[in-house]
Computed example of a mutant assay.
Amino acid sequence: MCTGKCALCVGGSLYPLALISIICNIILFFPGWDVKYSQNGHITEEVKYMGGLIGGGAMVLIPALHIHLTGKQGCCGNRCGMFLSILFAVVGVAGALYSFIVALLGLVNGPHCNQMSDSWGTPFKNRNESYLKHRDLWVICTEPTNVVEFNVGLFSTLLVASSLQLILCAVQMINGLFGCLCGTCRNKEKGPL
Rank of each mutant, 00 (worst) to 15 (best):
E129L: 06
A161T: 07
N128R: 12
P111W: 00
P144N: 09
S162D: 01
L105P: 00
L154Q: 10
S162F: 01
S156K: 06
C169D: 11
F178I: 15
D136P: 00
F100M: 14
L137S: 03
G110Q: 01
I140V: 15
N114T: 12
G153Q: 05
E149V: 00
L154Y: 13
F100W: 15
L164Q: 10
T122G: 00
L164A: 14
L107F: 07
V108H: 11
C185M: 14
H134G: 00
L104Q: 13
S99R: 07
W138Y: 06
H134K: 09
V108E: 13
P144I: 10
L177H: 08
C113W: 03
I174F: 11
I167T: 12
F178Y: 13
V108D: 10
C180E: 06
I167H: 10
Y131G: 04
G110W: 00
S117K: 11
S156V: 03
L105C: 12
S130V: 00
M173I: 15
L181K: 12
I101S: 07
T157V: 12
V139P: 00
K125R: 14
S156C: 07
S99A: 15
L168Q: 06
I174R: 05
C180Q: 08
P123G: 06
V139H: 10
L159R: 07
G106F: 00
L154E: 10
L177T: 14
L154I: 14
N109F: 05
R186H: 14
G153L: 04
Q165D: 08
Q115T: 15
L154A: 09
I140R: 04
F124D: 00
L105W: 06
L105T: 11
V160C: 06
G179H: 10
G176A: 02
L132V: 13
T122K: 06
P144A: 09
E143W: 01
C169V: 10
V171H: 01
I174W: 08
V152C: 05
I174N: 03
M116L: 12
L181R: 14
V152P: 08
V108T: 13
F155W: 11
Q165H: 07
S163Y: 06
F124P: 04
L181Y: 11
E129P: 00
R135M: 12
G121C: 07
I101W: 05
I140M: 13
C141F: 01
L105K: 11
S156H: 02
G183A: 07
P111E: 02
L166I: 04
L105S: 13
Q115D: 12
G106T: 02
N109P: 03
K133H: 03
G110T: 02
I101A: 11
I140N: 08
F178V: 15
W138R: 03
Q165G: 11
N151Q: 09
N151M: 03
R135Q: 15
F150S: 02
F150R: 03
I167M: 13
E149F: 04
V108C: 04
G153M: 05
C141S: 05
A170G: 14
